[in-house]
């Protein structure tokens, strides 16, 4: 993302206090070769409109499965999901119009250029951002005619984020937002999320980077072995972990998940 270029999305209409994402008692199992693995077990979380909530957890903690369930890509074995009050699977046509998702793996049409990919995704929404402006805001102008397959990992990531935002979503799920980005691009992405907050967009931010969550998120949910082990403000998580409020999120996270340094 170009430094100093702020991504401005149209302001989300104020609709009063409400819950943008509400997941209740989610359970998801995967069966493979006779073995059943519980990926998500009794997970409940909520994100209020305009909030930025971090979803933390080590690899395999169930973060991406939770994203799949919240975005409606997978059906839970138990529990319910509501996005702005609607079931993302039963009310697919309603939810998809207001939800932008950046999946963990940036996968798009390999042979299409950046510009073609963003324009294609823009066509799916009745309103949205101008693709060229979004490409510029993502710092991809010089790569706009490059096929997706020929992009660097960071450029693929930024294209994937552009695609998630092109429909002007009211609720955004960003799974590993800054993975593969250089420090400058990473800083630009953090500015992007701040811009989303100012515009009233709700964000569920999945991350391994404690500093990111600490800087950006109003609250964080910590997953471990598929279960929610803590949910609070970053400072509140430190207190929950029995530490001083200013101990820092990383210390709190390591204590809460029983990890050793």
């Amino acid at each position: 993302m170009t430094r100093g270029t702020r991504l401005r999305l149209p302001a989300v209409p104020s609709v009063g206090a409400m819950t943008a994402i509400r997941a209740t008692n989610l359970r998801k199992e995967f069966r493979r070769r006779g073995r059943t693995t519980v990926a998500v077990d009794d997970v409940s979380l909520h994100v209020e409109v305009g909030e930025i909530v971090g979803l933390l957890g080590r690899n395999g903690a169930g973060k991406s499965t939770t994203v799949d369930l919240v975005s409606g890509l997978r059906a839970p074995e138990a529990g319910t999901v509501r996005v702005l009050g609607h079931d993302p699977r039963a009310d697919r046509a309603k939810v998809r119009g207001v939800l932008g998702v950046q999946l963990q793996q940036p996968r798009l049409h390999d042979a299409l250029t950046v510009r073609e990919v963003v324009r294609l995704h823009r066509s799916f929404y009745p309103t949205g951002r101008e693709p060229d402006e979004l490409i510029e805001a993502m710092g991809l102008t010089d790569s706009r005619s490059t096929p997706f397959a020929d992009l660097s990992g960071g450029q693929m990531q930024r294209t994937s984020i552009a695609v998630a935002l092109v429909g002007n979503p009211r609720v955004v799920i960003l799974d590993e937002l800054t993975t593969g980005l250089d420090p400058e691009a990473r800083r630009g992405m953090l500015d992007l999320v701040r811009g989303l907050r100012e515009d009233g967009t709700t964000v569920l931010l999945v991350s391994h980077h404690m500093d990111e969550v600490e800087k950006l998120c109003d609250r964080a949910v910590v997953l471990d072995a598929g279960r929610v082990v803590a949910e609070n403000t970053p400072a509140g998580l430190a207190v929950d972990a029995g530490l001083a409020p200013d101990a820092g999120l990383e210390e709190a996270y390591l204590t809460l998940t029983g990890a050793t340094r």
Binding site: V15, R22, G85, K94, R96
Partner: peptide, 21 residues
């Protein structure tokens, strides 16, 4: 935090432009 304040969402179905794209 009350769901009753949630306004109805319009259904978004890709139109001819999306199909052609």
């Amino acid at each position: 935090m009350t769901d009753t304040l949630i306004p109805p969402l319009p259904e978004v179905r890709p139109g001819a432009r999306a199909w052609f794209a």
